[in-house]
Write a protein that binds this DNA or RNA. Structure first.
Lengths: 328, 328
DNA sequence: TTGTAAGCGTTATCAG
DNA sequence: CTGATAACGCTTACAA
């Protein structure tokens, strides 16, 4: 026996000694079969490529490990049947789930998991599923970026949009639109280029914008990868940044401060996002009674660097209220 | 019943139909208890921070998932008792293990895991443990970099060393030393600065080198992070790269091509490294009879960019023989 | 305090 | 081809 008050310290010590001598190790699967707890949380990500996911998973694992939990990860485009398969294969191996799926339509699932199975949705579009969810302040961040451009006197501000069907991309686009409207500027469809979050698409988008008769004076890319691609596209065409065209990105990946000129971006504390998600899940696991579900938004911060032409150094401005928490 | 030749197709279909209707999902823990297979591989990493680990885990998960396996990850400094604890907690939850621990002394363990438990060591110092191991061609890569500097006419080549006690760092240092010796150059202890793989340590090392009466004309940093730190240190002091001092790094992280000047580095296909590790482990799991253990070295490639002053564009040269494979 | 038996949800091994 | 029954390695509850 492992830890109980019904046993003498002496006996416990003796057992421990023998166990150590025989290199006895409890069998996880057997134990969890009767205990009904695996001390493992499942992590379902759409992909594992790039600094974003790396940081998310790091934050999750950090928090999980702190509470003695493991992470069972699975990365794949969790669309429809794939998600269902992934969920089923995790049945009996995890106590709860962190599911990140920005393209998740939400129509399915929930039949597949046993009722009341603890799930935290990360960066998922809002759905009728009644489970906890956590999103990034995409709208607020994009709004702050565009407002910043407007404040610098820009009137023709282009958008390199994120992947089609992606929730984060849609929210950032919404922020862009509302900021333009609030500044009394008209929507300019010809200045919106569809991208897919990759560097190549950013590069192509920049060239497309340069081909316009009436060029933009500023470009807001929906993530840093595309902003960096755009940067190299402009350099290819000998267009000066920020003198001729200003650029801003989103995510503030570590690389952002090293490109030339250093990239103005919307900072997201990705690792903290992961920690928060895992924290919520663990709280649910430890207090299953507390059934109220929460929907939180993780704050973003505008980080001003050289690429937008505002200043030389770097400074940051909060792009949203502090950790907003609305318990529904 | 799931899949067997002892059952009629008709019956199977009927069972399947009922199972689907009841949303029946097999219980992983229960199944693996009797099957003695978890379809999960354990991944023990020293950390999860930075692009290196992110890519390794991606390669592992990619391969694992392709074979229907999951990954149970655990990141922590796996020194001594911690490693043992991590191993025990995975007992009965994984079929095999990928263990990456560049500071692992190897004296312990192996008592803790059941005899013949499949383990693949990744970037671990050689030890007497008779399990498969996979390392990066650190020595060859460093040698190629320093030889490249020598070929450009450099005679005073500094080294910013990696973390003390780290196996990769030691091997890269060895490559540096042998390349100097082979070029007929003396060892220059004053040009060796101790770093720890962080950007800050690279920055500090660069300043220390600039403070010398007789400055180096080239700097080899044991990884890209430190090279980038050194780059910014030199820029602070208005030292031109590569005109005044040439710089080379190691790992070729994505950021390397975006810093200014673009960083000459030793390329490591990190994701492929992870795939290879997982592949070996899976092979062992599928053919347990094949008991011969293998020790492989993953090749590296010198990628020449602007920071070394050799040329404008970028080109690459193989720094080691193709996937060397010595089955012991 | 200690020993013994039941059972967690599967799969495997047998007689029907 | 089908249906019972015994494991798998552990925890827990209950009786000695």
């Amino acid at each position: 026996m492992n830890d109980s008050a019904l046993v003498t310290d002496e006996t416990r010590a003796k057992i421990r000694e023998v166990a150590a001598r025989m290199w006895y190790t409890p069998h996880g699967a057997a134990r969890s079969l009767i205990t009904r707890r695996t001390h493992t949380i499942g992590v379902l990500l759409p992909d594992l490529y790039g600094e974003f996911f790396s940081e998310v998973i790091r934050g999750i694992d950090l928090t999980a490990q702190h509470s003695g939990y493991h992470c069972l990860v699975s990365s794949a485009r969790h669309d429809g049947p794939r998600l269902e398969a992934a969920l089923r294969s995790m049945r009996g191996r995890v106590d709860g789930l962190v599911l990140m799926s920005p393209e998740f339509t939400g129509e399915l699932s929930y039949r597949t998991l046993p009722g009341g199975f603890p799930v935290v949705l990360l960066n998922c579009p809002p759905s009728e599923l009644d489970c906890d969810s956590l999103t990034v302040a995409n709208y607020e961040g994009a709004y702050a970026m565009v407002r910043h451009f407007v404040g610098l006197g820009h009137r023709r501000i282009a958008l390199i949009n994120g992947a089609a069907g992606n929730f984060d991309a849609a929210e950032r686009r919404r922020g862009y639109h509302v900021a333009l409207r609030d500044a009394g500027l008209p929507a300019m469809p010809e200045l919106e280029i569809q991208g897919d979050f990759t560097e190549e698409s950013g590069h192509a988008a920049a060239l497309a914008l340069l081909a316009l008769a009436d060029r933009p004076t500023a470009i807001f890319a929906a993530n840093d990868c595309m902003a960096i691609g755009a940067l190299s596209g402009l350099r290819d065409r000998r267009v000066l940044v920020p003198e001729d065209i200003a650029i801003g990105g989103f995510d503030d990946i570590p690389m952002a401060r090293y490109v030339v000129p250093a990239l103005t971006s919307v900072h997201v504390d990705i690792s903290a996002l992961g920690e928060q998600a895992a924290g919520r899940l663990l709280a649910k696991l430890h207090h299953p009674a507390n059934v109220e579900i929460s929907r939180e938004t993780h704050p973003t911060t505008l980080v001003v660097r050289k690429s937008c032409g505002a200043q030389n150094g770097s400074s940051s401005v909060s792009a949203s209220t502090p950790p907003r928490r609305s318990v529904v």
